[in-house]
Nucleic acid binder design. Structure first.
Lengths: 147, 147
DNA sequence: CGGCATCCTGACCGATACTG
DNA sequence: CAGTATCGGTCAGGATGCCG
């Protein structure tokens, strides 16, 4: 982002109205990436694999809250996107090892930035959330269910 | 990253087995944050608001693919988490302005890193995806539908 | 050990319609 | 203009059970 832009409130909006336009509407790929990484487990798996190759069981143990189904699914998706590499050893009970690819490794940087932000500002978010909830607001549920 | 770790495959895993353990299991807040930011519109709204305060209509116009419902919902969520600020002007037809809070603004940095990565590696991902798909793999659908 | 198949629930998201 | 309410579709994701 080289958006060396303004900061002016609601007054004159120059080209600030256009449909997010070309460059910054980099949101197309961004949304795409977020939908891959934004799921419940992908990030976790990538981070864990960032510490070195692991076997299926190791990953399953290392995350623990994940089910085989989700682990397999996440791994498949990551593999499909060229982020992880799968190696099968024709041993007796079958041994499979997963590892980050070069591409997958490049994700670790941006991810660490985001995780750092998350860790750093989680309390603020939670505080704001509690305050908002404590106010006259109808609660956290904003309208999906509620009979 | 600072993870100057090993690279050894399935051999000796020192403390690499623990449930992601304390520090790096920053995944608790991370997951939390990702579920807020990982949805379809939050990032987009934050980025657009990063260019300055906007009114509801402006946002609606600026993103265009979003419905009022989703825009409202996204804004509510962001507001609840203290990322955006809502200001109502008691004019005749009612005027509301949304703006990023300080907290919200701190997100712009990490977000830009991630978006940069996304833009930079999208082609790689897509290529890997196509290749994976072109191989003997059963296709993109990894098992949800498919009668 | 590693993985796939099936069923089911709930969250997310979109289109439409109606209110202040 | 700004927002809520309702309906319906789609999909992530959890539980279980079986196969190599």
């Amino acid at each position: 982002m080289s958006a060396t832009n303004n900061g002016v409130p609601g007054g004159m909006s120059v080209e600030l109205d256009m449909p997010v336009t070309a460059e910054e509407h980099a949101s197309c790929p961004v949304t795409d990436v977020l939908r891959r990484v934004g799921d419940k487990w992908s990030v976790l798996v990538v981070v864990v694999l960032g510490r070195g190759p692991k076997r299926f069981s190791q990953l399953h143990r290392g995350i623990e809250d994940i089910s085989q189904r989700m682990l397999t699914r996440t791994l498949r998706g990551l593999q499909r996107d060229g982020l992880v590499d799968r190696t099968v050893y024709p041993t007796v009970p079958a041994t499979v090892e997963y590892a980050l690819t070069d591409l997958g490794r490049t994700l670790l940087g941006p991810l660490s930035v985001l995780t750092a932000w998350a860790v750093d500002h989680r309390p603020d978010i939670e505080e704001a959330r509690v305050r908002h909830d404590a106010a006259g607001n109808p609660g956290a549920d904003h309208g999906v269910s509620r009979a």
